[in-house]
């Protein structure tokens, strides 16, 4: 079975972001960028499925500038077979390529590649939308298994997926092809070994554009501006449990 893994290049999760002075976006110059953490988990899952002999080929796709090749190479270094970059200079974090447009791009790729399964992150940590997988499943008319914490592929046409829901866990049986979005608990992504990073440079990479795929990247949501969230300043340190109880009862009046 061929699997398609969409990955996104985002500001590294450890970076303390800064809003541009004109409020039009987030400062991305000289900021460390990495693969979206949820997408690393999707890649790892695909590699594990390949190691089990269930998956035959892993195709990674990313939408973004030339630099987005880096996250595709990262996926290749842990085991993906080839990459597709849908090159665009439209911003991919905010105010540009939106989840709906990403879903349409992925549909066009699916139409060409005919994968048996799409595994992707449940959300990107920049835009925090948590939409693309569900939209893609809708557009394809495929089943969706979101927030997956366990994936068992039964056969070429069936899978069992355990999902994280608000009150606990839920298990679904879904027919393939399908879209699965992964949660943090699914697995622990591996690090790429240096020889594999070198080998990844030789793996095939195709570059396409939104025009090639017939997708329009003009946003439906206009980003009017960005605001700083309300600042919470540090309060006081208390010396003892008694002092804490006194503050909560008499000052904050919350107990």
């Amino acid at each position: 079975m061929k699997v398609l893994i969409p990955v996104k290049r985002v500001v590294d999760y450890n970076v303390k972001i800064r809003i541009k002075s004109d409020k039009s976006g987030i400062e991305l110059n000289n900021v460390k960028m990495s693969m979206n953490p949820f997408d690393e988990i999707a890649v790892e899952e695909a590699v594990r499925l390949k190691e089990k002999g269930i998956v035959s080929e892993i195709v990674v796709v990313s939408i973004g500038p030339d630099k987005a090749q880096d996250v595709i190479r990262t996926a290749m270094a842990v085991g993906a077979d080839r990459g597709i970059l849908v090159k665009t200079d439209v911003p991919t974090d905010l105010g540009g390529v939106e989840p709906l447009a990403v879903a349409k791009t992925l549909k066009a790729i699916i139409d060409k590649e005919q994968p048996g399964l799409v595994i992707m992150g449940k959300q990107s940590i920049d835009d925090d939308s948590n939409q693309t997988g569900q939209m893609l499943a809708a557009i394809m008319g495929w089943p969706q298994a979101t927030f997956a914490s366990e994936i068992i592929i039964d056969s070429e046409i069936s899978a069992h997926v355990t999902r994280e829901i608000d009150g606990g866990l839920e298990t679904l049986q879904i027919s393939l092809p399908a879209v699965m979005t992964v949660d943090l608990r699914l697995n622990e992504p591996r690090y790429a070994a240096l020889p594999n990073i070198m080998k990844a440079k030789q793996k095939p990479m195709e570059t396409l554009s939104a025009e090639d795929l017939g997708v329009d990247y003009s946003p439906r949501l206009k980003l009017v501006s960005l605001e700083e969230p309300p600042v919470r300043s540090a309060g006081i340190k208390v010396e003892s449990v008694d002092a804490l109880i006194d503050k909560l009862k008499n000052e904050a009046k919350v107990i």
Binding site: L100, Q134, M135, A138, Q144, L221
Partner: peptide, 23 residues
């Protein structure tokens, strides 16, 4: 914007060709 709504509404958005606004 619970796991229920997050699972469901983007699928509706995909069917309607609408860009959903999350959270």
């Amino acid at each position: 914007a619970t796991n229920f709504g997050k699972n469901l509404l983007p699928r509706v958005a995909g069917l309607l060709d609408v860009q959903q606004i999350s959270d």
